[in-house]
Amino acid sequence: MRLFMQTKPTGADAPRYYQLVLQQDLLGGWTLFREWGQQGSRASSKREVYLERDAALTAFEHARDAQLRRGFHVMFSQGFEGPHAR
């Protein structure tokens, strides 16, 4: 699953972005990748590993909801049908 969110540009500043990617690894675990920053600038990232799909999906949804509350808007989503697809 992949979700790309972005803020609206303000004045001369480029918009900020936040990307979430949830992937299953070869051993059956799940990895949640987070990447954020300002368009055209250096990005920050974080990787979290989960043994269970439900725990990984809960972390994905929590991260998504937190960024939506901060004013980010979904620009692109891939790999799931809705906010609570399981």
Results as ranks from 00 to 15, higher is better:
E48H: 13
E61W: 09
A14R: 12
Q39K: 10
G29T: 03
K46W: 12
F72S: 02
R69I: 10
S77I: 00
Y50G: 03
Q24A: 13
L3F: 02
H62S: 15
R47M: 07
G82K: 12
A14T: 05
W30G: 00
E52W: 02
S41N: 12
K46S: 14
L20K: 00
Y50A: 04
S77E: 08
E52Q: 15
G40E: 09
R53S: 08
F33T: 13
A85W: 10
G11V: 10
F80Q: 03
A85T: 15
G71Q: 03
A56C: 09
Y50W: 06
Y50I: 05
K46C: 15
T31I: 11
R53A: 13
T7K: 06
K46F: 08
M5R: 02
A55R: 06
A12C: 04
A85K: 12
A56S: 05
H84I: 05
K8A: 15
G40A: 08
K8Y: 09
Q24N: 10
L32R: 03
Q39F: 08
F60D: 00
V74W: 02
Q19P: 00
T31F: 13
D54R: 06
F80C: 11
E61N: 14
E52T: 05
Q39N: 14
R64G: 01
A14F: 08
S45M: 13
R47E: 08
F72P: 01
R69C: 11
H73I: 12
A56I: 06
A14W: 08
F80E: 05
F33S: 14
V74P: 07
H62I: 13
F33V: 04
G79R: 07
V21C: 10
F33L: 15
D25T: 05
E35S: 09
Y17P: 03
P15V: 06
E81D: 14
A12G: 01
